[in-house]
Design a protein around this nucleic acid. Sequence first.
DNA 1: AGGATTTTTGACCAGTTGGAAAAACGTTAG
DNA 2: CTAACGTTTTTCCAACTGGTCAAAAATCCT
Lengths: 237, 237
Amino acid sequence: MPPIKVKNSAAAGTNPVPEAVRKARAKIRKGGKPLTRIQREKQDIILDAALEIFSLHGFRGATIDQIADAAGMSKPNLLYYFPSKEIIHKRLIAELLVTWLAPLREMDPDGDPIPEIRSYIRRKLEMARDYPRESRLFANEMLQGAPRTIDMLEGDLKALVDEKAKVLYRWMDEGKIARTDPYHLIFAIWATTQHYADFDVQVRAVLGKGRNGEGRFEDAARFLENLFMTGLGTKRA
Amino acid sequence: MPPIKVKNSAAAGTNPVPEAVRKARAKIRKGGKPLTRIQREKQDIILDAALEIFSLHGFRGATIDQIADAAGMSKPNLLYYFPSKEIIHKRLIAELLVTWLAPLREMDPDGDPIPEIRSYIRRKLEMARDYPRESRLFANEMLQGAPRTIDMLEGDLKALVDEKAKVLYRWMDEGKIARTDPYHLIFAIWATTQHYADFDVQVRAVLGKGRNGEGRFEDAARFLENLFMTGLGTKRA
DNA sequence: AGGATTTTTGACCAGTTGGAAAAACGTTAG
DNA sequence: CTAACGTTTTTCCAACTGGTCAAAAATCCT
């Protein structure tokens, strides 16, 4: 990390418009409220490119140059929209966590257990199919020990899972699903669905030419539904 | 990547012993056969340290300095034992793939299906517990699109899985296990077991203080055995 | 149009990184 | 003791990295 540079405040006279001051002003304004349409668009392009690169190489392995390249602009230009690599990453992670947990949040405590769980699995698998980059970004974070995410994991995530685990326990008590460990059930659903995003290369390599069209997601959906639904059938208690 | 530098051959006179030549000779010898005990020991230390660092930061994110540090030696000293970062990584991946697939290889076609699959799951979970770094190294490779592993995936790995899939199909035909997709069954076993190594932070965060001692692996073993064995019970076909 | 503002660029900088060279060090066989 | 060998350290370098800065270019507003 380069040393923190103290920005020389505009102590000079009231010349036409000192460059450094103008620049500073622009950045400060962005820290404020408005944010024009173009700025939002460019930021979106950058975030999309950054997602691509970060999800592939992790935080340390990704370079601003790569991201700028993927976003079709120069490095200084990118840095005009975001003050640093770290900030971009933080934004991505924050956005990710919201959408990533939506399916679990939507599992309805008052719904019918089997259909609720079934559709949770389906939605999670659809996310792996439609948002593999987000999945890999998250996986990268986890692999590195979640340095920038640990608070969220121990806070919101744990709270959410605890809450849903209680619902699952209740469903078990009511005899609507087989008795099992709800935490590890959730882990298993996460693991199996995200596997199709994170280990996509391996899946495609193993399935080979014949099967690797879009078919693998259909097959996976059928298999996982079968696996978990059989496992949750009440006929075995 | 730095440009390949042509080594200026020892065209000079026969001075006492030109340094560059000596160094080159030493490296060449290592390329040959013998390899002393000390050399093997140091190389092992380096490989162990490299596994630690690579598994945490991925190839690009890891630096030789970090690895050297973890191995308790200086960077040039490390580079005395291995010619480059890339070579170290290759060695690790190669070693990994052998041990990593051992459990699947050991699944006996002539054994009893249910116990065979059960003990495969158990061994895979034990590997996640005992060799989490190897698991994460592999996961990192996959996330990056397996640039250094794709051949192996499409070759040996695919062949092995195809072979075992055939065995599973036979067991299904013989009515010994429920009919299901053997490929996705294997994927599910990989995903769920490796999850406990790769996403360890998340698992511990969610389970919280109370449960995260070594208990989680016992619980996981019970859960997964239950899940897969119920799913494979023949009573439903 | 013309001035102000926003966006883009090119040059640059300091710190890091992978790696090379060579000299210094240690050990052991003669 | 010392020459030869293997090992380790010091020094160095070129490329890369995250990031700055001032000026140029494009855009916006009236």
